[in-house]
Amino acid sequence: MKDVEITLTVNGEKKKVRVSPKESLLHVLRDKLHYISVKANCYRGECGICTVLMNGFPVKSCQVLAVETDDADIVTVEGLSKNGEPSLIQKAFIEKFGFQCGFCTPAFILAGHYIVENMPDATDEEIKEVLNGIVCRCTGYKQIIDAIKLALQWKKEGKS
């Protein structure tokens, strides 16, 4: 099978990339386009730390074929802050100490961003369900969940 050219939008910028049919979105983002916030660990869909937003939904980028992302809209952590101003979820992670070593953090921030944008009344259990696909070995998750709840509350209060 031959390489094909795809066009995808990453953090609002249009990118044309030549990809092989077996190449993952993870490989394109990290190794071809150098979005280093997209981390990797298991490359087989178990750890979730390569999570990015694809058309608004969190996906494990190692499990998405690059050819599937032709015309797709991708967001990584680099794309969350607007004009240098961190997004709500980023501010909340800092406020609540929702990160330690930082290697899984981009994935949790994007999952948190998804919750803040789409699940305004999320309960603890619903938040945990979204987060269950991503592994963190440092925090024990509580401060991550606290950060997401704070961002939800800020959003309700109209803070931006």
Binding site: I36, S37, K39, A40, T76, V77, E78, L80, S81, P86, Q90, F93, I94, E95, F97, G98, F99, C101, G102, F103, T105, P106, I109
Partner: peptide, 16 residues
Amino acid sequence: PRIDKDKVLGGAEFAF
């Protein structure tokens, strides 16, 4: 607050 905020904002660099 933690000073290693680049882990949250993007750009934190690991040996990886």
